[in-house]
Amino acid sequence: MRITVFGATGRTGVPFVRRALDAGHEVVAHARTPSKLPFSDERLVVVEGDVYTGEGVAEAIAGADAVVSLLGQTGDGPDDLLTVAGDHVTGAMAEHGVTRYVTLVGAGVREAGESPSLSGKVMGTLLRLVAKEVLADAEEHVRRVRATDLEWTVVRAPRLVDGDASGYRAGDIDLGFESVARADVAAFCLDCVEDDLHVREMPKVGPA
């Protein structure tokens, strides 16, 4: 399988790329700074570009079987990163006839009618107080993705931490103040791609 990855040099992107290569897939890593990828492989193709401006996006997506977005907000990044980048990605997917899309957002993004746990409600309130723009960007990105004809999956994760994969649970689960290893999130995203899990669903992923 040929998988295009956006956010490939990030702290979740790197373990995803490594895991996908170890599984025998061909990976196209779109990166603003390719030198940040800590390894090379004969099945790894790096496309330099900027997903926020759209540079290199179509080139990276052409010929892909699936696209995975592991982009994350940073303190000095644009407030609408996920929304704008997502539009570039989904537009290029439509142009090249690629339908499978997995994108990662925070667990603070809710589905209509969803009833989070008490701790989840508290976390959601805190996010709206301290990271209002980040949450609004993720919510708008998800709204636009859901409006497409793509075979999308929106993966929702709580606070991400570094460390080795130790197993995850995913689906319609309660999440609150817990954290999950980025390596486990990477594993779940790859499982969604490989096994066509949670198509047009918004599963949550947390520690096992």
Rank of each mutant, 00 (worst) to 15 (best):
R2P: 14
T4M: 06
G7R: 05
G10I: 04
G10Q: 04
R11H: 13
G13N: 04
V14T: 13
P15E: 10
R18C: 06
L21F: 11
D22K: 07
D22V: 12
D22G: 07
A23G: 10
G24N: 06
E26T: 15
V28H: 04
A29L: 05
A31D: 04
P34L: 07
K36V: 05
L37N: 02
L37A: 08
F39Q: 07
S40I: 06
D41A: 09
E42W: 08
R43F: 11
L44S: 10
V45T: 15
V46A: 09
Y52A: 12
T53D: 13
E55H: 11
G56L: 05
G56V: 05
E59S: 11
E59C: 04
E59H: 10
A60F: 08
G63I: 15
D65M: 05
L70N: 11
L70M: 12
L71G: 03
G72N: 08
G72V: 09
Q73V: 08
G75N: 09
D79N: 08
D79W: 08
T83E: 12
A85M: 07
H88M: 02
M93G: 01
M93K: 00
G97S: 11
V98L: 00
T99R: 09
V102I: 13
T103P: 05
A107D: 06
G108Q: 02
E114P: 02
P116C: 09
S117T: 15
G120P: 02
K121P: 04
V122Q: 08
M123I: 10
G124S: 10
G124F: 06
V130T: 14
V130G: 15
A131S: 15
K132Y: 14
K132Q: 14
E133K: 13
E133Q: 14
V134N: 13
L135G: 04
L135Y: 01
L135Q: 03
H141A: 01
V142S: 00
V145P: 00
R146M: 14
A147S: 15
A147T: 02
A147F: 00
T148P: 01
D149R: 08
D149K: 13
V154F: 00
V155K: 00
V155F: 00
R156A: 06
R159P: 02
R159T: 15
R159C: 06
L160I: 12
L160E: 02
L160S: 04
V161Q: 08
G163Q: 07
A165L: 06
S166P: 04
G167R: 03
R169N: 06
R169Y: 03
G171A: 11
D174R: 12
L175S: 12
G176D: 07
S179H: 11
R182S: 04
A183T: 14
D184T: 13
A187M: 07
A187H: 10
A187N: 06
F188K: 05
L190T: 10
C192I: 12
E194N: 08
D195E: 14
D195A: 12
L197K: 10
L197M: 12
H198G: 02
V199R: 02
E201Q: 14
G206E: 01
P207A: 13
